[in-house]
């Protein structure tokens, strides 16, 4: 059963002292699914994501990512996933090509693999001319698309995207989602957080965290039916408004 799942969690919990940041969350993410992980600031999304990425050990509960145990195999997990955030993903003072060389090397890929993949990405993003340009001089939209390509450079089973489209213009935002669709169609599981509620509609399934718990999890259509809402924005507001915890 678990081979069919990219992620499974059972009562996964993280406490910091008296504070329960993540409170017994249980859910499963299917292989090749685009899974939207929503929640207000401070709901516990980042803490949950850090546990799933093998960066933080849970206090209790169970979780597997790409079939690997988050307690015992967290180093292997890091190798099996890709990660990208709005704030950090690429080195500004390395060129486009150097960034890919760097990440390919970190993930232990061969020179031949790196060379071939670099050529493919440059061609795909129409960045051939910018191959030797410092990343800091690229427009934000290009940077984000390149960051995504780098996050899936080593062909991970799962890619975690933490607010990948914040501040990006509406045209580039859609081009970015197109890349997500293509990656998912190719079998990569996509785990994504966003504050844009229209993007929640693009996910296969969406979970909404409130005060450390998962209060809702379903397809966007069923969530809208269940909460009698016209849009995901409304669903989110209905759930997040009842949060007791102060936003962070």
């Amino acid at each position: 059963m678990s081979e069919q799942k990219a992620i499974t969690t059972n009562k996964l919990t993280k406490k910091f002292g008296d504070f329960t940041a993540v409170d017994e969350i249980s859910f499963e993410v299917n292989k090749g699914e685009i899974f939207g992980f929503l929640g207000a600031n401070g709901a516990g999304k980042t803490t949950a994501m850090r546990m799933l990425c093998g960066l933080s050990l849970p206090t209790s509960g169970e979780a597997t990512v790409a079939g690997l145990n988050v307690y015992k195999e967290n180093e292997k997990i890091k190798r099996s996933i890709g990660y990208m955030s709005q704030k950090f993903s690429l080195y500004d003072d390395l060129t486009v090509k150097e960034n890919m060389r760097f990440y390919g090397g970190i993930y232990g890929k061969s020179n031949a693999f790196i060379k071939q993949k670099t050529a493919y990405i440059l061609d795909h993003l129409h960045l051939e001319k910018e191959a030797n340009v410092l990343v800091k001089s690229l427009p934000l939209g290009w940077k984000q698309k390149l960051a995504f390509s780098v996050a899936v450079f080593h062909a991970p089973e799962i890619v975690f995207l933490d607010e990948p489209t914040g501040g990006v213009d509406p045209v580039t935002r859609r081009e970015f989602w197109n890349m997500i669709y293509v990656a998912a169609a190719g079998g990569t599981t996509v785990f994504v957080t966003t504050h844009y509620m229209d993007e929640a509609e693009y996910c296969d399934r969406v979970s909404i965290m409130v005060d450390g718990r998962i209060d809702a999890l379903d397809t966007p259509i069923r969530l809208k039916e269940k909460f009698n809402a016209a849009s995901m924005d409304e669903v989110f507001l209905k759930l997040a408004r009842k949060a007791a915890r102060a936003a962070d």
Partner: peptide, 13 residues
């Protein structure tokens, strides 16, 4: 200047 960037939908409202 961008007071609501990175802020969730409820806090933005």
């Amino acid at each position: 200047d961008e007071p609501t960037t990175g802020v969730d939908a409820v806090s933005r409202k």
